[in-house]
């Protein structure tokens, strides 16, 4: 809180304003994106960049004390559990049968790729050692 920390003050304000901007951007994406699988990307922006920048700004503002230790613990915990929770939500949605929508002009190409992928394993029985190494 002393006047000698001018640069630290400026850095912390930049981090806090950037984190707030990322939070609002992620929330707007959560509103504006058309379907579930793209909304997960907006949530990941909010979970990683917004949280880390805001915690960094608060840590720079709080100085080197027990507050910083708590902020580091909170940041590590959110950094681990945020992607884990997002993965759990996506996995539960996938298991329940929700699939990403495919554009109608891409549907034929995706179907051909899937058919080629399912036809691939029985066709590769010619060379057992040299097949999957590529």
């Amino acid at each position: 809180m002393t006047a000698s920390g001018g640069i630290v003050d400026v850095l912390s304000w930049i981090a806090i304003v950037g984190g707030s901007a990322f939070l609002v951007i992620g929330a707007v994406g959560l509103i504006r994106f058309p379907e579930f699988w793209s909304r997960l990307h907006a949530i990941s922006v909010l979970d990683s960049a917004g949280v880390l920048l805001l915690l960094l700004g608060m840590g720079l503002q709080g100085g080197l004390s027990l507050v910083t230790v708590k902020l580091v613990i909170l940041g590590l915990f959110l950094l681990i559990t945020g992607p884990t929770a997002t993965h759990a939500v996506a996995n539960a949605a996938f298991v329940s049968g929700l699939r990403p929508p495919i554009r109608s002009e891409d549907r034929a190409a995706v179907a051909a790729t899937a058919a080629a992928a399912t036809r691939e394993p029985p066709a590769s029985d010619g060379g057992p050692a040299s097949g999957p190494s590529g």
């Binding site: 959560l30 909304r39 997960l40 949530i43 909010l46 997002t86 939500v89 996506a90 539960a92 949605a93």
Partner: peptide, 9 residues
């Protein structure tokens, strides 16, 4: 799942 993800956020 939109709601669950929104609750998490």
């Amino acid at each position: 799942y939109d709601r669950v993800a929104a609750v998490n956020a």
